[in-house]
Amino acid sequence: MTINDVQTILKATVVTQSLYENNEVLSGFVGDLLSVVMGKAKEQCAWITIQGHINIIAVGTLINVGCIIVTEGFKVDEDAIKKANEEDIVIMTTQLSSYEAAALLSRDGLE
């Protein structure tokens, strides 16, 4: 599944420069506690979280995240978006809950 597919399935809004729509995501991970994400999320995963602050970029970079999906309508901080653009990380936002987002991606075949 590509990042573009993720965006289409969730009808999400990409808030970063969208240059990487064709990159693949290989799995999904839901988590709001950063250490848990760093311990468990796989490379190139679609990371679903309610956290919208700059530390998600550090974590996303460390785990080579595929894209970050910020759910529940939470806002992504400006400095986080700026940093994400520097680090080539894609962030999208949605009003869906983390559960709904995960369920939709799962239904369309994301592990």
Binding site: L34, Q51, H53, N55
Partner: peptide, 15 residues
């Protein structure tokens, strides 16, 4: 509130 405090940091370091 920033997503720290799972108590998993040292466990991750050890791992």
């Amino acid at each position: 509130e920033m997503g720290f405090g799972a108590g998993m940091g040292l466990a991750n370091m050890k791992r």
